[in-house]
Design a protein around this nucleic acid. Structure first.
Lengths: 140, 140
DNA sequence: CCTTTCTGTAACCACCCTGGTTACGATTAA
DNA sequence: TTAATCGTAACCAGGGTGGTTACAGAAAGG
């Protein structure tokens, strides 16, 4: 069996939520304790999730008193696809099992499935790239 | 937290593999023991996965000696989207966390995320609907 | 009938992922 | 120096996933 992007995991959802909160407080540094309230999670988890966004250059953080987190770019230029990629990297979307190596049919099937996985990820990212964090701030 | 379609799960992948094996043996009934070999799994798991396809009307089964499984429709009319829906039903694709109910911003964000989830599923199904099991049998 | 070969399904299990929690060192404002 | 905050690891409980076993039901074939 091989790993997949999505387990029963809410990291993307939480990351979008956090980015929206940061977009709502431009020019401020917001600390992880405050950020944890609206998504109903905890400061350590907030720092874990935002750490991935920081590694992708989407946000930055400052240590110490009056420290916290802020977006690194205008929310109009931050798409859900950016966040998806920062959170899920190149993890597979569909998930592909390991076939019996002695069965040639299995090799063909799984090769095709990997192609489908790439197509699925592309379709997903295209959809997500059409929504920005700024859009989420002013819905409808 | 809320559930999601994909955990670390290979059921879709295995289901496509099994459907391809059945498509390669038209007019035959293939038993779960034989079907388990190529995907490198076991008969009980094969029956569990194919059970979902049967519930969706994609395959049928016969009990007893000389029993087994067969496609219910020509492989040209069986798309990966059909299999995806049979396996994953209406499970969410992106996964959405439960926000703090006392935070109105959280409600808006998660409502938008549910909309994104519907868009993502639509994009995924559109992509998967463009490939049939017959296509997988004769690649390239 | 009886035996054999299948499906159908439940039960149990080990493995792993996820996120809550605690902890503690490093950083930095005051 | 103190206190606030990040960075990160460790530990844990809960749940999902699929391997395995088990056994009742169905049906072919004598």
């Amino acid at each position: 069996m091989s790993g997949m992007a999505q387990a029963t995991n809410t990291r993307f959802s939480v990351a979008v939520h956090l980015a929206t909160l940061l977009a709502d407080r431009p020019g401020e540094l917001v600390d992880s304790g405050e950020l944890a309230i609206s998504p109903a999670t905890n400061p350590a988890h907030v720092r874990r999730v935002l750490g991935r966004l920081r590694a992708a250059g989407l946000v930055h953080s400052v240590s110490g008193p009056k420290g916290g987190w802020a977006l690194s770019h205008p929310p109009e230029s931050l798409t859900l696809a950016d966040i998806w990629t920062a959170i899920n990297a190149d993890d597979p979307v569909l998930g592909v099992h390991l076939p019996n190596p002695s069965c040639p049919v299995g090799q063909t099937v799984t090769a095709n499935l990997h192609t489908q996985d790439a197509l699925a990820r592309q379709a997903l990212l295209t959809t997500l790239s059409q929504t920005t964090i700024a859009t989420l701030l002013t819905p409808k």
